[in-house]
């Protein structure tokens, strides 16, 4: 049964600046299910500290944007047995202008969304964001169809 997230993030209320602080989540990042203060990226082996500017729920590497498929339905539940590598698939924007990375699992195809952090690689983020516009024939065709 699909559940509504209790911490229904702050994208429903208010504009940028007037949002309440993100809720703290006790997510086990250490190996073997213990609490840790850092995780190692599966893509580039960078040691990533959990404290990130701009977000309380970091789940991807700030350098290569790779993530790990550990959550099942609710972010932070650590209930998935897949543990495949998740790569950034596309960029989405909330109503208040926050960018969200859509990750897709390379092993099972599951999708997940996470807010970008303040220290994420800006070049990698922009490369994901302009991917739909890289092939210029599609926008031209769309404008001609209007």
């Amino acid at each position: 049964m699909p559940r509504k997230k209790k911490s229904d993030d702050n994208h429903r209320h208010g504009r940028r600046g007037s949002t309440r602080p993100q809720r703290h989540k006790d997510v086990l990042h250490g190996r073997g299910g213990e609490a840790g203060d850092a995780f190692r990226c599966v893509g580039c082996r960078l040691d990533v500290p959990l404290a990130a500017p701009g977000t309380a729920h970091r789940n991807h590497c700030p350098n290569c944007l790779a993530s790990l498929h550990v959550d099942r339905r609710v972010p932070g539940d650590r209930d998935s047995a897949c543990r495949g590598r998740m790569t950034a698939l596309s960029m989405s924007v909330r109503e208040d202008g926050e960018w969200m990375i859509i990750h897709s699992c390379l092993s099972c195809g599951e999708l997940s969304a996470n807010r970008i952090a303040g220290d994420d690689n800006a070049l990698a983020l922009v490369r994901i964001a302009i991917r739909p516009l890289a092939d210029s024939s599609v926008p031209v065709r769309a404008l001609l169809a209007l």
Partner: peptide
């Protein structure tokens, strides 16, 4: 609908965080 598709494609670049 090509208009909605293009609007979603350019949306990140219309409101960049940097």
């Amino acid at each position: 609908n090509q208009l909605i598709l293009m609007r979603m494609a350019v949306r990140p670049l219309a409101q960049p965080p940097f």
